[in-house]
Simulated scan of single mutants.
Amino acid sequence: MSVKLALLALLEQEPMYGYQLRAEFEARTGATWPLNVGQVYTTLARLERDGLVEGAGTDEEGHVNYRVTDAGRTEVATWFTTPVSRTQPPRDELAIKLALAVTVPGIDVGAVIQRQRSASMAALQDYTRLKRAGAAAAPQERVDLAWSLVLDSLVFSTEAEIRWLDHCEARVRRAAVEAAGARPTATDAAPRPGSPARAQEEVR
């Protein structure tokens, strides 16, 4: 997620200071990705350095307002019209955990998957309750539509995660069965009657 570009997009509407930007961002995303106000001001300083925002004076309480520059508007327009790149997918802690779990001896991969599935199911239930509550509420402003879209994204991604966990469990079980089938047993190791090896033993 690009905090820089999100803040620029908000500043296109009107000049704001750091605390306002944080509040606007969290209101539109349902506080799904909380921002530290220090992070906001650090980002604003970088945007100002890069010529994408500029100071717009102070308010009565002494807050420094920022407004987007023409270069900043161009940056925002490019962001909205350019697809999000998938060439470098973000690090997925769960995928990394399972990749290591299947390669580290002594880890009960099935238990790891089951615990995660339970947690993901609980999260999905919470998201679904929020969706129902939103659907039951009276029609409100566009900010609620923004939060609803974020909530839809969370629901879809969690459903996909649960399906992926089911897939992982099936793959792990199949791999265990195949490994057990390929492992020679004491009976398999002994030459079968009529085999060349058994005939050689009998000659001896």
Score class of each variant (00 low, 15 high):
18 G>Q: 02
18 G>S: 15
19 Y>S: 10
19 Y>K: 11
19 Y>L: 12
20 Q>Y: 06
20 Q>W: 02
20 Q>H: 09
21 L>D: 11
21 L>G: 07
22 R>D: 02
22 R>W: 00
23 A>H: 02
23 A>G: 07
24 E>L: 10
25 F>W: 07
25 F>Y: 15
25 F>S: 08
25 F>T: 00
26 E>A: 12
26 E>R: 11
27 A>K: 15
27 A>W: 02
28 R>H: 13
29 T>C: 14
29 T>Y: 08
29 T>L: 13
30 G>W: 01
30 G>I: 03
30 G>F: 07
31 A>S: 13
32 T>V: 12
32 T>P: 00
32 T>M: 12
33 W>G: 07
33 W>N: 14
35 L>Q: 09
36 N>I: 05
36 N>L: 02
39 Q>V: 08
40 V>P: 09
40 V>Y: 05
41 Y>R: 15
41 Y>P: 00
44 L>F: 07
44 L>Y: 07
45 A>C: 05
47 L>F: 04
47 L>I: 11
49 R>F: 07
50 D>A: 14
51 G>V: 13
52 L>G: 01
54 E>Q: 15
55 G>C: 04
56 A>L: 00
57 G>A: 09
57 G>Q: 03
57 G>E: 05
57 G>H: 05
58 T>M: 08
59 D>M: 13
59 D>S: 10
59 D>P: 09
60 E>H: 10
60 E>F: 02
62 G>H: 10
63 H>M: 08
63 H>D: 10
64 V>R: 14
65 N>I: 00
65 N>A: 05
66 Y>T: 03
66 Y>R: 14
67 R>G: 08
67 R>S: 08
67 R>M: 04
68 V>R: 01
68 V>L: 11
68 V>H: 01
69 T>N: 10
71 A>Q: 07
71 A>M: 00
72 G>V: 06
73 R>Y: 01
75 E>K: 01
75 E>V: 00
76 V>F: 06
76 V>G: 04
77 A>K: 12
78 T>P: 05
78 T>C: 03
81 T>G: 05
82 T>C: 08
83 P>C: 06
85 S>Q: 11
86 R>L: 15
87 T>D: 13
87 T>E: 15
89 P>Q: 11
89 P>V: 10
90 P>D: 13
92 D>Q: 12
93 E>H: 12
94 L>A: 09
96 I>M: 13
